[in-house]
Protein backbone atom coordinates (compact mmCIF):
# COMPACT_ATOMS: atom_id res chain seq x y z
CA UNK A 1 0.00 0.00 0.00
CA UNK A 2 2.82 2.42 0.81
CA UNK A 3 4.09 2.19 -2.77
CA UNK A 4 0.79 3.32 -4.21
CA UNK A 5 0.59 7.00 -5.11
CA UNK A 6 -1.28 9.20 -2.61
CA UNK A 7 -3.69 10.34 -5.28
CA UNK A 8 -4.75 6.74 -5.94
CA UNK A 9 -5.41 6.25 -2.26
CA UNK A 10 -7.37 9.47 -2.18
CA UNK A 11 -9.46 8.11 -5.08
CA UNK A 12 -9.85 4.84 -3.19
CA UNK A 13 -11.17 6.78 -0.20
CA UNK A 14 -13.74 8.53 -2.34
CA UNK A 15 -14.78 5.34 -4.14
CA UNK A 16 -15.10 3.29 -0.96
CA UNK A 17 -17.25 6.04 0.53
CA UNK A 18 -19.50 5.91 -2.56
CA UNK A 19 -19.66 2.11 -2.39
CA UNK A 20 -20.56 2.18 1.30
CA UNK A 21 -23.46 4.49 0.51
CA UNK A 22 -24.63 2.61 -2.58
CA UNK A 23 -24.34 -0.96 -1.23
CA UNK A 24 -27.39 -2.03 0.74
CA UNK A 25 -26.82 -5.72 1.48
CA UNK A 26 -25.09 -6.92 4.59
CA UNK A 27 -22.91 -9.55 2.84
CA UNK A 28 -21.64 -6.96 0.32
CA UNK A 29 -20.80 -4.49 3.07
CA UNK A 30 -19.11 -7.20 5.10
CA UNK A 31 -17.07 -8.14 2.04
CA UNK A 32 -16.06 -4.50 1.63
CA UNK A 33 -14.96 -4.35 5.27
CA UNK A 34 -13.02 -7.62 5.00
CA UNK A 35 -11.26 -6.38 1.84
CA UNK A 36 -10.21 -3.24 3.64
CA UNK A 37 -8.93 -5.19 6.63
CA UNK A 38 -6.90 -7.35 4.25
CA UNK A 39 -5.45 -4.21 2.67
CA UNK A 40 -4.46 -2.97 6.13
CA UNK A 41 -2.84 -6.30 6.93
CA UNK A 42 -0.87 -6.18 3.66
CA UNK A 43 0.24 -2.64 4.48
CA UNK A 44 1.67 -3.86 7.82
CA UNK A 45 0.44 -0.87 9.80
CA UNK A 46 1.40 -0.29 13.42
CA UNK A 47 -0.51 -1.49 16.45
CA UNK A 48 -1.88 1.98 17.24
CA UNK A 49 -3.91 1.79 14.04
CA UNK A 50 -5.49 -1.48 15.16
CA UNK A 51 -6.34 0.07 18.50
CA UNK A 52 -8.14 2.83 16.64
CA UNK A 53 -9.98 0.25 14.56
CA UNK A 54 -11.00 -1.66 17.66
CA UNK A 55 -12.57 1.48 19.14
CA UNK A 56 -14.25 2.09 15.78
CA UNK A 57 -15.90 -1.35 15.97
CA UNK A 58 -17.02 -0.76 19.56
CA UNK A 59 -18.44 2.60 18.61
CA UNK A 60 -20.28 1.08 15.64
CA UNK A 61 -21.68 -1.67 17.88
CA UNK A 62 -23.02 0.93 20.32
CA UNK A 63 -24.54 2.80 17.40
CA UNK A 64 -26.21 -0.38 16.13
CA UNK A 65 -27.47 -1.16 19.62
CA UNK A 66 -29.02 2.27 19.91
CA UNK A 67 -30.66 2.00 16.55
CA UNK A 68 -32.02 -1.44 17.41
CA UNK A 69 -33.48 -0.07 20.64
CA UNK A 70 -35.30 2.61 18.70
CA UNK A 71 -36.82 0.73 15.76
CA UNK A 72 -36.29 -2.98 16.56
CA UNK A 73 -34.90 -3.76 13.09
CA UNK A 74 -31.75 -5.76 13.61
CA UNK A 75 -30.85 -5.95 9.91
CA UNK A 76 -31.10 -2.19 9.43
CA UNK A 77 -29.02 -1.64 12.55
CA UNK A 78 -26.33 -4.01 11.28
CA UNK A 79 -26.29 -2.38 7.84
CA UNK A 80 -25.94 1.13 9.29
CA UNK A 81 -23.11 0.02 11.53
CA UNK A 82 -21.31 -1.75 8.66
CA UNK A 83 -21.68 1.28 6.44
CA UNK A 84 -20.08 3.40 9.09
CA UNK A 85 -17.23 0.95 9.59
CA UNK A 86 -16.65 0.59 5.85
CA UNK A 87 -16.50 4.35 5.36
CA UNK A 88 -14.26 5.06 8.30
CA UNK A 89 -11.84 2.19 7.68
CA UNK A 90 -10.78 3.66 4.38
CA UNK A 91 -9.64 6.81 6.15
CA UNK A 92 -7.57 4.65 8.45
CA UNK A 93 -5.97 3.09 5.39
CA UNK A 94 -5.31 6.49 3.84
CA UNK A 95 -3.85 8.05 6.97
CA UNK A 96 -1.86 5.03 8.10
CA UNK A 97 -0.19 4.36 4.77
CA UNK A 98 0.31 7.86 3.40
CA UNK A 99 2.72 10.41 4.72
CA UNK A 100 0.99 13.75 5.10
CA UNK A 101 3.77 15.48 3.21
CA UNK A 102 3.14 13.24 0.21
CA UNK A 103 -0.59 13.77 0.42
CA UNK A 104 -0.16 17.53 0.35
CA UNK A 105 2.33 17.25 -2.50
CA UNK A 106 -0.27 15.23 -4.44
CA UNK A 107 -3.02 17.70 -3.67
CA UNK A 108 -0.89 20.54 -4.95
CA UNK A 109 0.76 18.93 -7.96
CA UNK A 110 -2.13 16.79 -9.21
CA UNK A 111 -5.30 18.37 -7.84
CA UNK A 112 -3.94 21.92 -8.21
CA UNK A 113 -5.01 22.93 -4.72
CA UNK A 114 -3.03 25.98 -3.52
CA UNK A 115 -0.13 24.86 -1.38
CA UNK A 116 -1.20 27.02 1.55
CA UNK A 117 -4.41 25.01 1.92
CA UNK A 118 -2.80 21.63 1.49
CA UNK A 119 -0.22 22.65 4.04
CA UNK A 120 -2.88 23.46 6.62
CA UNK A 121 -3.97 19.83 6.51
CA UNK A 122 -0.52 18.58 7.41
CA UNK A 123 0.11 21.27 9.99
CA UNK A 124 -3.20 20.58 11.74
CA UNK A 125 -2.26 16.92 12.14
CA UNK A 126 1.18 17.84 13.39
CA UNK A 127 -0.25 20.01 16.16
CA UNK A 128 -2.90 17.61 17.50
CA UNK A 129 -0.51 15.98 20.04
CA UNK A 130 0.75 19.40 21.17
CA UNK A 131 -2.80 20.59 21.57
CA UNK A 132 -3.75 17.58 23.68
CA UNK A 133 -0.65 17.96 25.85
CA UNK A 134 -1.45 21.63 26.33
CA UNK A 135 -5.03 21.02 27.40
CA UNK A 136 -3.80 18.46 29.90
CA UNK A 137 -1.26 20.94 31.26
CA UNK A 138 -3.88 23.64 31.61
CA UNK A 139 -6.25 21.25 33.36
CA UNK A 140 -3.50 20.36 35.80
CA UNK A 141 -2.63 24.00 36.36
CA UNK A 142 -6.28 24.80 37.01
CA UNK A 143 -6.55 21.81 39.32
CA UNK A 144 -3.62 23.16 41.34
CA UNK A 145 -5.55 26.37 41.74
CA UNK A 146 -8.57 24.54 43.08
CA UNK A 147 -10.49 23.96 39.87
CA UNK A 148 -12.60 20.79 39.75
CA UNK A 149 -15.35 20.02 37.29
CA UNK A 150 -18.32 19.27 39.54
CA UNK A 151 -21.98 20.15 39.90
CA UNK A 152 -24.74 20.19 37.34
CA UNK A 153 -24.31 20.39 33.58
CA UNK A 154 -24.36 24.16 33.49
CA UNK A 155 -21.82 24.53 36.28
CA UNK A 156 -19.61 22.02 34.58
CA UNK A 157 -19.93 23.84 31.30
CA UNK A 158 -18.80 27.11 32.85
CA UNK A 159 -15.95 25.50 34.69
CA UNK A 160 -14.81 23.87 31.45
CA UNK A 161 -14.61 27.32 29.95
CA UNK A 162 -11.81 27.92 32.42
CA UNK A 163 -9.80 25.30 30.55
CA UNK A 164 -10.93 26.16 27.06
CA UNK A 165 -10.27 29.90 27.16
CA UNK A 166 -6.52 29.73 27.83
CA UNK A 167 -6.33 26.87 25.34
CA UNK A 168 -7.88 28.94 22.57
CA UNK A 169 -5.77 31.96 23.45
CA UNK A 170 -2.64 29.86 23.34
CA UNK A 171 -3.69 28.32 20.04
CA UNK A 172 -4.17 31.78 18.55
CA UNK A 173 -0.76 33.02 19.70
CA UNK A 174 0.78 29.80 18.44
CA UNK A 175 -0.75 30.15 15.02
CA UNK A 176 0.56 33.70 14.85
CA UNK A 177 4.07 32.59 15.74
CA UNK A 178 3.76 29.79 13.22
CA UNK A 179 2.71 32.15 10.46
CA UNK A 180 5.72 34.34 11.23
CA UNK A 181 8.12 31.44 11.33
CA UNK A 182 6.80 30.15 8.01
CA UNK A 183 7.52 33.51 6.43
CA UNK A 184 10.97 33.50 7.97
CA UNK A 185 11.60 30.12 6.36
CA UNK A 186 10.71 31.41 2.92
CA UNK A 187 7.31 29.76 2.74
CA UNK A 188 4.70 31.10 0.39
CA UNK A 189 6.45 31.68 -2.91
CA UNK A 190 4.68 28.93 -4.80
CA UNK A 191 6.37 29.67 -8.07
CA UNK A 192 9.64 28.27 -6.84
CA UNK A 193 8.42 25.48 -4.62
CA UNK A 194 9.65 21.90 -5.02
CA UNK A 195 8.63 18.59 -3.47
CA UNK A 196 11.15 16.11 -2.22
CA UNK A 197 8.97 13.09 -2.75
CA UNK A 198 7.84 11.63 -6.01
CA UNK A 199 4.08 11.28 -6.10
CA UNK A 200 3.58 10.45 -9.77
CA UNK A 201 1.36 7.57 -10.83
CA UNK A 202 2.85 4.18 -11.73
CA UNK A 203 1.35 1.20 -13.56
CA UNK A 204 -0.21 -0.26 -10.41
CA UNK A 205 -1.94 3.06 -9.76
CA UNK A 206 -3.56 3.11 -13.18
CA UNK A 207 -4.62 -0.50 -12.70
CA UNK A 208 -6.20 0.29 -9.34
CA UNK A 209 -7.92 3.40 -10.61
CA UNK A 210 -9.30 1.54 -13.62
CA UNK A 211 -10.67 -1.34 -11.55
CA UNK A 212 -12.23 1.06 -9.07
CA UNK A 213 -14.00 2.91 -11.89
CA UNK A 214 -15.17 -0.36 -13.45
CA UNK A 215 -16.50 -1.65 -10.14
CA UNK A 216 -18.37 1.59 -9.49
CA UNK A 217 -19.92 1.52 -12.97
CA UNK A 218 -20.95 -2.08 -12.42
CA UNK A 219 -22.64 -1.15 -9.13
CA UNK A 220 -24.43 1.79 -10.69
CA UNK A 221 -25.67 -0.36 -13.63
CA UNK A 222 -26.84 -3.06 -11.22
CA UNK A 223 -28.93 -0.61 -9.27
CA UNK A 224 -30.52 1.37 -12.04
Amino acid sequence: MQKIAPITKLALTIFVTIWSIVLQSLPALTALIVCQLILLAIAKVGSSVYKGIASLFIFAAILAGMQYAINHDILLAAITASKMIAMTLVFFILLATTRMQDLSAALVLQCHIPYEYAFMLTAALRFIPDFLAESKAIQEAQACRGYSPQGNVLQRFFSYMAVIKPLVLKAVTKSETMALSLELRGFGSRKTRSFKNNVTLALQDYAMLLSMILFTSYLVIQIY
Partner: peptide, 22 residues
Amino acid sequence: QLVTMTVEEEVAFSLENLGIAP
Protein backbone atom coordinates in the same frame (compact mmCIF):
# COMPACT_ATOMS: atom_id res chain seq x y z
CA GLN B 1 8.36 26.48 14.36
CA LEU B 2 8.27 22.77 13.70
CA VAL B 3 5.49 22.17 11.24
CA THR B 4 5.95 18.68 9.81
CA MET B 5 5.53 15.16 11.14
CA THR B 6 9.08 13.82 10.97
CA VAL B 7 12.61 15.12 11.44
CA GLU B 8 13.76 14.79 7.83
CA GLU B 9 10.58 16.36 6.48
CA GLU B 10 11.16 19.36 8.69
CA VAL B 11 14.54 20.08 7.15
CA ALA B 12 13.27 19.23 3.66
CA PHE B 13 10.43 21.70 4.11
CA SER B 14 12.83 24.67 4.26
CA LEU B 15 14.51 23.48 1.09
CA GLU B 16 11.25 22.81 -0.72
CA ASN B 17 10.18 26.36 0.05
CA LEU B 18 13.17 27.53 -1.96
CA GLY B 19 12.48 25.18 -4.83
CA ILE B 20 15.62 23.04 -4.44
CA ALA B 21 15.71 19.89 -6.60
CA PRO B 22 14.62 16.67 -4.84
